[in-house]
Amino acid sequence: MRLAQLLSALLAGLLFGSGLILAGMTNPEKVRAFLDLGGKWDPSLALVMAAAIAVAMPAYAWSKRRGTTLAGVPVALSVRRRIDRQLLCGSVVFGIGWGLLGVCPGPGLVAAASGDGGALVFVAAMSAGMLLAGRLSRQ
């Protein structure tokens, strides 16, 4: 069963990365065009997200009801409900970074794997930011 879980995680990653590329979400200009409401607005990102949510929603509802997965392991869904300052501040900080360049973690990793220098710099800085914030928030 452990092998099945590794294979399904590999396949899930592959589907995710392929989907991002197919939908053009690895193109920062396209993402910025979605974020730029004032310019020539490009609704692509909203369409991609809506399709993804629509496909995932039944699987989440079913898993939540069942409590265990097809591989027999418990479902690990977040039980956090609190909307606190850390959630809001973190989202604002993430939003500034996302808005500046038009790259979020998934597309950043995919583009870095494709060997692009700019994406590699972005991912290196993102990794540093994660470790730094992790250290600060523990103190």
Partner: peptide
């Protein structure tokens, strides 16, 4: 593309 992302999300939940 969005459906592929959704399928990835569904798979990781349904199995893992």
């Amino acid at each position: 593309g969005g459906a592929a992302i959704g399928a990835a999300v569904a798979l990781l939940m349904l199995v893992n």
